[in-house]
Amino acid sequence: MLNRKPLFPGVIELNFQAGEVLGCNVYLVYDADEWLLIDIGYEETVDSFVEIIRQLDFPLSRCKTLVATHADVDHIQGLAKAKAILKTTVTAHPKAVEPLRTGDTLITLAEITAQNLKLEMPPVDIEHQVNDGDIIKVGSLEIEVWHTPGHTDSQLAFRMGDVLLSGDNIYRDGCIGAIDAHHGSDIKAFVKSLERIRDSGVKWLAPSHGPIFANEPEFMNRTIDRVKGYLKMADFGTLAEGWPLMDEWEDEVADGILPEGLGPVSS
């Protein structure tokens, strides 16, 4: 049997427990013998995670549910396999239900033709839907569900006292979950979600990728200010709300303005 290495009371992260990074962060939340998993990662690592759980002496029959933070392939490709092994249910936000149920390879980013990426996305039924403010109980523990859209429209985070299992909202280096129109990103919503996390009073953020870190306002503000800037950048295409350069260009065209040092060319 393995000695348990909880990060917080009732919370084990399975990569940290294993001593190697197998994929996205997978959080096992438990009280006594009852437990659940938040995310599962790729199908190919399911057996490894299940074996770790077995060696931690958690009864496989006591898995309450498998929770999807959102419907991106690197978090949920293994759901169908894990569900079958553990004979349990799947829980997700309503907006994640259809892509998970149908195995949609576009919305889940399992298939990106331009990058020659094509992964299987096994469909899985969702028994339980949760939304902002709902409570998931594990033994005597209560997990508060937050809907934090931005990275995707189905992104969830989970508060347990001073800890937020924060999904793909923000990482220790200040990066955020990828912004991509194909899986429901929304820059304005992202800003609101980051502001909510900053102002929540939560002390620790446990993300879906990388190490745990402190929720410090100055750190959060740097990322929030950067993301706000994306709303005015052509880099983000249809997800931006405007492109100030085009307003400037219209005025310059109307006034016949050229850059300093570049005069009219005679015909």
Rank of each mutant, 00 (worst) to 15 (best):
I187K: 01
S140D: 13
G19Y: 09
V90Q: 00
G237P: 13
G161Q: 02
F8M: 14
Q55M: 10
E127D: 02
E51C: 07
E20S: 11
G174I: 09
T45M: 15
A84D: 10
I176P: 03
E43D: 14
Q115L: 14
K192N: 14
M246N: 09
F158S: 02
D180K: 04
E241P: 01
K5S: 11
D255L: 12
I179E: 04
H75T: 01
E218A: 10
V202E: 09
A96N: 01
K118V: 15
V67M: 02
N221P: 07
E248C: 09
I143N: 00
C175W: 08
A234P: 05
A82I: 03
S140N: 04
P244E: 14
A157D: 03
I187S: 07
Q77D: 09
C24E: 11
T102L: 11
T105M: 06
I126F: 03
A82F: 02
V21D: 06
D186W: 11
L245K: 10
I52L: 11
E98V: 13
K232Y: 14
K118R: 14
I126G: 00
I135N: 01
F49G: 04
L14F: 09
A240C: 10
S166M: 08
F219N: 02
P259E: 09
E250P: 04
T105S: 09
H93E: 11
D173I: 11
I257Q: 07
S267L: 06
Q77M: 14
F8Q: 08
E195K: 14
Q17M: 11
S208I: 12
A18C: 09
E127K: 00
V97I: 14
P207L: 04
V50D: 02
R54P: 03
Q155L: 10
G261M: 15
E216G: 06
V265T: 15
L2I: 10
G133R: 03
L156A: 02
A92Q: 04
D225S: 15
L2W: 08
P122W: 01
G78M: 07
H151P: 01
A114F: 08
D132A: 14
F190G: 10
I143Q: 00
T152F: 04
V124M: 01
H70S: 04
F8K: 07
E195M: 13
C24G: 13
R54K: 11
D255R: 15
E241C: 05
Q155A: 10
T89R: 02
A189K: 09
G10Q: 03
V21K: 03
L156T: 01
N25F: 10
K95E: 02
E260K: 08
T89S: 04
R4S: 15
S140T: 11
T223K: 07
N3A: 05
D186F: 15
T223D: 13
T88H: 01
I112P: 00
